[in-house]
């Protein structure tokens, strides 16, 4: 069992998402950096979709009441056990009575912790992922609080694993994300189409798992358009009337009515999930073929590792 002594800024339980209910308005949810979540689970011998903790910006303090193995990946929050720094991207044995805490954030924004055997929780609508707006999944459908106690499944691992360097992503506070032009791209003025690809945008303070509000040069349509609500997907960049783009992320609503200028490609979503308010973003156009080939190659390499 682990006991939360301090909850951190926002610590939630996530897996790879809740699929199959999007036609009922249910967001997909799940880890913002799915690659890091998969690697964390691999470190402790779990399957990729096992529940992990997603830490945001400031890490929690937690006490282990039983011995287990953990894996920590994603943002570097300088993890410590009983005050001594421990390695990330490596399976670590935590003894009964030990306290896991975190220091200052030095890269990225979301850290993942896996536990060998996973957490003792019931899936809701097929997933462990916390979707707090509907009090669904995770631990009581909400972010963790001081005093929460999470039960661990016990599973001994025999092999200490280490994630090879090439899978340990480097996060930057100035990111270029690759996109495909989206459904309403042609409705934007030529100047705005140019601006979107040439100018830098800053991630605003009001950004969260639902979406990042970007701040920068306003984008406008050739002429005013009234759009009917339509299904949206993770990575959609939509532009409301004030011209400031919003990148929709894993907890976003399933439908939206603002013009969509671009879609972030799948391979760049985990990087995007590691951006925080104040970070800078630029957009670069790629082709569908290039985007899918990049993602295919990455996933094949990742799959090969996860099988070992």
């Amino acid at each position: 069992m682990i006991e939360i002594l301090k909850p951190g800024f926002s610590t939630t339980i996530q897996d790879l998402g809740r699929f199959g209910y999007q036609d009922y308005g249910m967001p997909i949810s799940g880890a913002m950096d799915t690659d890091a979540a998969k690697l964390a689970n691999w470190l402790v011998g779990n399957h990729s979709n096992e529940a992990v903790l997603e830490l945001t910006l400031i890490g929690p303090v937690m006490k282990f009441h039983s011995t287990t193995f953990i894996g920590i990946t994603g943002a570097n929050l300088n993890p410590q056990i009983n005050g001594t720094a421990i390695a990330m991207y490596k399976s670590v044995k935590v003894e009964k009575g030990a306290v896991l805490s975190f220091g200052k954030l030095s890269s990225g924004v979301r850290t993942y912790i896996s536990f060998s055997g996973g957490l003792q929780l019931e899936k809701e609508l097929g997933s462990f992922s916390t979707y707090s707006y509907a009090a669904l999944g995770g631990f009581q459908g909400r972010a963790l609080k001081k005093g929460d106690r999470l039960l661990l499944n016990t599973k001994n691992i025999t092999e200490v694993k280490k994630v090879p360097k090439e899978f340990q992503l480097a996060y930057t506070s100035s990111l270029t994300v690759r996109v495909l032009p989206s459904i309403e791209f042609d409705l934007f003025s030529e100047e705005s189409q140019k601006t979107f690809f040439e100018k830098e945008y800053v991630i605003g303070a009001q950004s969260n798992r639902m979406g990042y509000r970007l701040e920068g040069d306003a984008l406008c349509l050739k002429e005013k358009a009234e759009l009917l609500s339509s299904g949206i997907i993770t990575g959609t960049v939509q532009v409301p009337e004030n011209g400031q783009p919003i990148v929709l992320l894993t907890d976003a609503q399933t439908t939206g009515g603002y013009p969509r200028i671009a879609n972030v490609i799948a391979i760049d979503l985990p990087f995007l999930g590691q951006q925080k308010p104040g970070d800078k973003i630029r957009f670069r156009q790629v082709s569908l073929e290039e985007a899918q080939a990049l993602n295919h190659n990455k996933n094949m390499r990742l799959k090969k590792l996860l099988k070992t």
């Binding site: 699929f19 199959g20 999007q22 036609d23 997909i28 009917l228 299904g231 949206i232 997907i233």
Partner: peptide, 11 residues
């Protein structure tokens, strides 16, 4: 992976 029907579209 997911199907989202709307007013005039299906995603």
């Amino acid at each position: 992976v997911a199907i989202i029907p709307a007013f005039t579209t299906i995603t």
